Simulated assay, not measured.
Amino acid sequence: MSADTQTPAIILHSPQMGENIGAAARVMGNFGLPDLRIINPRDGWPNDKAFSMAAGSPVLDAAKVVTDMAEASTDLTRIYATTARPRGMEKPVLTARQAMAEIRQAQMAGEKVGILFGAEKSGLPNEAVAMADAIITLPVDRSFSSLNLAQTVAVIAYEWTAEEGAPAEFEEVSDPASREDLERMFVHFEDELERAGFFYPPEKTALMTQNLRSAFIRGRWTTQEVRTFRGAVKALAIGRGKARIQRDD
């Protein structure tokens, strides 16, 4: 099994400072996490400050720079979002230690997992958090809860390594759906809902879509379940078309 499937991917969502990207890559190298994915870095790529701060970490040399969340998570079956704010979404909220134990079990069962980190000032956008299976929070002082990006990655990386000696108890997962499969299912379903006039009023479309996706993510879909659901959506769409024809007749 490759290193990428044995360890979680670290995903930096719209990071601002090259220094923080480099520091995150450096600590990932320290703790044996090779898979770094960077979404739309503010100051462009490559970034001299990032490479200087990485101090020769091989993680940065192999980092994948992508344009959006979908591209960063195509091959993943599970995502954890690091944020201090649950944002009112109905998602499990875990400590770093609890999350690393759960992630290790998922990895051992063949899943590919990503851990998502937000930008230094704004954190993670709601649409990114909606795509996560669970939220990771750290027990920081609520009066000063903002952590440096690289520091947060360091805490998670340490907890991952500390979990390495934990008992290997896990249950087999039956062919979990990739994020690419889920994204296609979401788009298919949302297109049909749009045609059916579900999104009303129009200004609430984004919120309604976010809530639907968040609910689906909690279901931990398998590839077969995605195929079945898309087949059901297609059948309903075809049936709706037949009903229109009959009414017209």
Rank of each mutant, 00 (worst) to 15 (best):
S2K: 15
D4W: 14
Q6S: 08
P8C: 06
P8D: 12
A9L: 14
I10K: 09
Q16P: 00
M17A: 14
N20M: 02
I21K: 09
A23P: 02
A24Q: 03
A24H: 05
A24V: 00
A25G: 10
R26G: 03
R26Q: 05
G32I: 01
G32K: 06
L33T: 13
D35K: 12
R37S: 10
R37M: 13
I39T: 03
I39N: 07
D43H: 08
G44Y: 12
P46S: 06
N47F: 00
M53E: 15
A55P: 02
S57M: 11
K64C: 04
K64L: 07
T67V: 02
T67H: 05
S73Q: 13
S73F: 02
T74P: 02
L76K: 14
I79N: 08
T82Y: 11
T82R: 11
T82K: 10
T83S: 15
K91I: 00
V93I: 15
T95L: 06
A99N: 03
E102G: 06
E102I: 02
E102R: 13
I103L: 10
Q105V: 02
M108P: 02
G110Y: 10
G110H: 13
G114S: 14
L116A: 10
E120Y: 03
G123V: 08
P125N: 06
N126D: 15
E127R: 09
D133T: 02
P139N: 11
F144Y: 12
F144K: 00
S145P: 14
S146C: 12
L149E: 11
A154E: 12
V155A: 09
I156F: 14
A162K: 11
E164T: 10
P167I: 08
E171R: 01
D175P: 10
P176H: 02
P176Q: 03
A177V: 01
A177N: 04
R184P: 00
H188F: 00
E190N: 01
D191L: 03
P202A: 11
E203C: 01
S214Q: 12
A215I: 04
G219R: 06
R220P: 01
W221N: 01
W221C: 04
T223F: 03
T223N: 07
V226P: 05
T228P: 00
F229K: 11
G239M: 03
A243C: 05
I245C: 00
Q246P: 00
D248R: 13
